[in-house]
């Protein structure tokens, strides 16, 4: 009775899920030991396991997909899976943006003595709230060291904005190339996108270096530094992942895995990349600019 058209593909037993769970466990166990003064090799071991798992698991899915085992319903499952995954990512960033808004617009004011909830008269008398917060309530003693200046929106951040927006365009260009079977356009569009992703990361690494070395802006510079690095850091991590995914897709494209109709892997990565793009716009607006 089973023709591929009317039956949903049910995979055989698979070792990858347990490997994934074990690798994640080892990685995180390693991080716990590391932050408590241990070395990083257990984390490294876990990460190697994760890498092995990603190769194996995705490799198997690609192989199944290429041999035509997936019908339209399976395709829809993949699309929904990716869409909901991105939704959950949206809420991950929502958390950090929410914190930024809360700190900037609500609690910092109280700390500076504003309104009926004012606290500064009890804690630090002469603290004045300002954003970006350079002068800390406790004057930078103890755990914290004040930054010399805040990160402005011009220069590198602006360049990075342009780079990411351009990469969104080149990616869409490449997608059109796939849909219309234009080999030159699909390959070079994707190559450019990967390159732009790498350039973005290099710029950001340089920005961090500059901030640490010259501006004294670190994780320890109070709430401004903390939110700055948390938001840009997690975003940067997502760009790195996205670039890696784009690279994998590029390899698959070169191998001829995608047809004009069937190239969901490409689209999934494109969705992800556009999501990362949009997050950056929020960052640029609220972290660098306003």
């Amino acid at each position: 009775m089973t023709s591929n058209e009317d039956s949903y593909y049910l995979p055989e037993l698979s070792k990858w899920p347990v490997i994934a769970a074990t690798a994640l466990f080892i990685t995180l166990l390693g991080v716990v030991l590391w932050v408590n003064g241990g070395s990083l090799w257990i984390t490294g071991l876990g990460l190697v396991g994760m890498g092995y798992m990603f190769f194996g698991w995705f490799g198997q899915v690609i192989e199944e997909s290429m041999s035509g085992k997936y019908n339209a319903q399976v395709d829809k499952t993949f699309r929904m899976g990716m869409a909901w995954f991105i939704t959950s990512e949206v809420f991950f960033f929502f958390c950090f943006f929410g914190c930024l808004f809360y700190l900037r617009t609500i609690s910092l004011g109280w700390l500076g003595g504003e309104g009926t909830m004012a606290r500064s008269n009890m804690l630090w008398d002469d603290f004045a709230a300002a954003w970006p917060l350079i002068s800390l309530p406790n004057g930078g003693g103890g755990l914290y060291a004040e930054a010399k200046e805040a990160m402005g929106p011009m220069g590198l951040p602006l360049a990075n904005t342009i780079i990411l927006l351009t990469s969104g365009v080149t990616l869409t260009w490449s997608h059109h190339g796939i849909k219309h079977g234009n080999r030159f356009q699909q390959v070079w569009g994707l190559v450019l996108t990967v390159l732009l992703g790498v350039i973005f990361l290099v710029c950001q690494a340089y920005e961090y270096y500059h901030a640490y070395q010259e501006m004294g802006l670190t994780l320890n510079s109070g709430i401004y530094g903390a939110t700055f690095y948390m938001l840009t850091g997690f975003h940067g991590f997502h760009v790195a992942m996205g670039t890696l995914m784009l690279f994998v897709i590029l390899v698959r494209l070169l191998k001829g895995h995608f047809s004009n109709e069937h190239h969901f892997a490409f689209e999934a990565v494109a969705w992800y990349w556009h999501f990362v793009d949009v997050v950056w716009l929020g960052l640029y607006l609220f972290v660098y600019w306003l």
Binding site: F91, F92, C95, L111, P137, N138, Y144, L219, G225, A226
Partner: peptide, 29 residues
């Protein structure tokens, strides 16, 4: 779940990496 994960991540950073999300001395709350 992602929001909670973000929250405990900040806790981890406050504990080990010197951030001040939840410490008023650094401007947090």
């Amino acid at each position: 779940m992602p929001v909670f994960a973000g929250g405990v991540t900040m806790l981890l950073f406050d504990r080990h990496f010197g951030t001040s999300f939840f410490d008023a001395a650094g401007g947090g709350d």
